[in-house]
Design a protein around this nucleic acid. Structure first.
Lengths: 187, 187
DNA sequence: CGCGCGATTGAGTAATTTCAAATCTAGTGG
DNA sequence: CCACTAGATTTGAAATTACTCAATCGCGCG
């Protein structure tokens, strides 16, 4: 369990036992059942979540209560309403479990403490953030340039393992297409 | 000129004269004319650019040579093909000047040197990256949830000064709408 | 005045959505 | 093993939205 987190950090930089022990003091763990909300829009967002196991979706409800999927997150991914987290304000999005999910979570104060104590940690976050930014840009491009079929195929190619774990309805909500259109793609 | 850059950093953290002198050694300056490409897709991307003055667009050409706008950047904004920059590989995007533009630019080596010498610099980049990520997510959401009219109004609201400097055709290419549709919104 | 660029308008077409109904599937309990 | 249910997927048909292509308009500038 703890190993998952340590391995995850050590894909980027090495940690001594002592350092990792300190890191752990800043995290707490929690389990959620399928269908649970980890947080909902309007909640004060105090934490960033590291998915140990399971699968979640970050969603936005529009004015007609339609659900749109901002992102999925599974094992080894970090997730939160980052804007709300960094500004310690209320969530625009909601985080809902598509499967039973276990997470480590850390507060903003804890996050800052880590960065101060272990400078490499800041490099780590920077790398994560950069990658998140880059893949968001890729998705924007996909939405700008590709039709539903192309978007779906790009998604399958980019996230093959994810695609097998979620329903087409969920994929449609991520791609910005109605589930009927997605269903008709290969007929 | 140099002041622009210093002020920009000092919106986030303070720099001594000596530190800023060191910062400057890592940057070079260049001027571009309206219509110039700062880089084009396929180019090796060695630099990140800070816009001192002017206005540029980061664009992607699809298979039919249609142009799509990934982002605009004006005074005080950082821009590059960040994926290509961090992996020191070839650009997917092109960066073109919509107005005469002056930039400071820095290499990956220079960027790393800055982070090592001045740790606050890393915090600075992290903040920029986080904000870029958050606003990309917002744009994704806009593309997922809003129709052309709503997207256009969100754009006007989010970037009022930018909207006055660019043609509707450019805005259309950013919003993922044909210019004719954009033109018909209020008729 | 005439050129060039951007914006607008019109008409027809293509893509996607919506709403409704039917079908399929996996899991549950008898 | 079968019947039943809930959820997901598929299908059909009509309505809507946005696109494309083509023509026109408007304006600033040499």
């Amino acid at each position: 369990m703890y190993k998952t987190l340590r391995n995850h950090f050590e894909e980027t930089f090495d940690l001594t036992d002592k350092e990792f022990a300190f890191v752990l003091t800043q995290f707490k763990m929690q389990d959620f059942k399928k269908g649970d909300f980890i947080f909902q829009n309007g909640d004060q967002i105090k934490y960033v979540y590291f998915i140990i196991s399971g699968l979640v979706k970050l969603i936005y409800f529009d004015k007609d209560a339609n659900e749109h999927i901002v992102s999925f997150a599974m094992e080894d991914w970090w997730e939160s309403d980052f804007n709300a987290f960094f500004t310690q304000s209320e969530a625009t999005y909601s985080l809902k479990c598509l499967e039973a999910t276990s997470v480590f979570y850390i507060s903003l104060a804890g996050y800052r403490k880590l960065c101060e104590e272990i400078p490499k940690m800041e490099t780590f976050w920077l790398q994560k953030s950069n990658r998140g930014f880059v893949s968001s840009q890729r998705r924007i491009l996909s939405l700008l340039t590709a039709n539903p079929k192309e978007r779906y195929e790009q998604f399958l190619k980019a996230y093959p393992s994810l695609a097998q774990r979620i329903s087409k309805t969920q994929i449609a909500a991520y791609l910005g297409v109605s589930r009927e259109t997605l269903s008709r793609l290969y007929s």
